[in-house]
């Protein structure tokens, strides 16, 4: 892959916005101003961080130079940039959760996993053949930052422990044939 400074690449920026009118617009302005191309905004309204901020995920295209300027401009504007980088979601990770997933508030489990790990849930499948009262299983495909898989799993284990869920982890190195 070419690493030229002129290459336009896809980036993901994770922001935490103060809950007041106009904040989102204020956060997006530097992207256009620095020549970035906005691809998508994932605005998790109603879902607050422990500090009461609203997490927002922004996908955009820019050259590496433009991207650095965007992040600098965001920070100068006093916007809380949690994660920024082309490599934010370069690794994928699949896990299976087992236990009383529905009774223990599945949506809360997923939110906690996303918030605490910074990973993004890309695919989700629930299998509850015995009904929602019984033990069920869920498969999660997570996009994580490069090299962060171990930390992400560790954090998921902690969240799962609190809800007495079992985590079936992938086996790094086991795929080699």
């Amino acid at each position: 892959m070419s690493d030229s400074a002129e290459d336009v690449r896809a980036y993901t920026v994770r922001l935490e916005l103060v809950d007041r009118p106009g904040e989102l617009l204020r956060a997006l302005e530097p992207i256009a101003e620095q020549g970035g191309n906005l691809l998508s905004i994932f605005h998790e309204r109603g879902n607050l961080t422990p500090r009461g901020d609203i997490p927002v995920e922004v996908d955009l295209e820019a050259t590496p130079g433009q991207f650095d300027s965007i992040v600098d401009a965001l920070r100068e504007a006093g916007i809380n940039v949690i994660q920024a980088g082309a490599e934010q979601y370069s690794d994928e990770l699949t896990i299976v959760l087992v236990g009383h997933l529905v009774d223990t508030d599945l949506s809360d489990t997923l939110t906690q996993i996303q918030d605490a790990t910074g990973a993004s849930v890309r695919d989700f499948s629930l299998s509850a053949p015995e009904g929602e009262e019984e033990e069920s299983s869920a498969r999660l495909r997570l996009a994580t930052q490069k090299g962060r898989a171990d930390d992400v799993i560790e954090t998921i284990r902690e969240i799962a422990d609190q809800k007495a869920l079992r985590v079936v982890e992938p086996l790094p190195g086991g795929e080699a044939v």
Binding site: T94, V96, V98, S125, S127, A128, P129, E130, E135, S136, S137, A138, R139, R141, R166, V168, L171, G174
Partner: peptide
Amino acid sequence: VEGIHELPASALDLAEEDGQTIRLIGE
């Protein structure tokens, strides 16, 4: 150490859908 005691079949189904399986692995 963690075992496979009472692992639900649904966990293996989900793994299979993804081209995977579950095994008791030691490292």
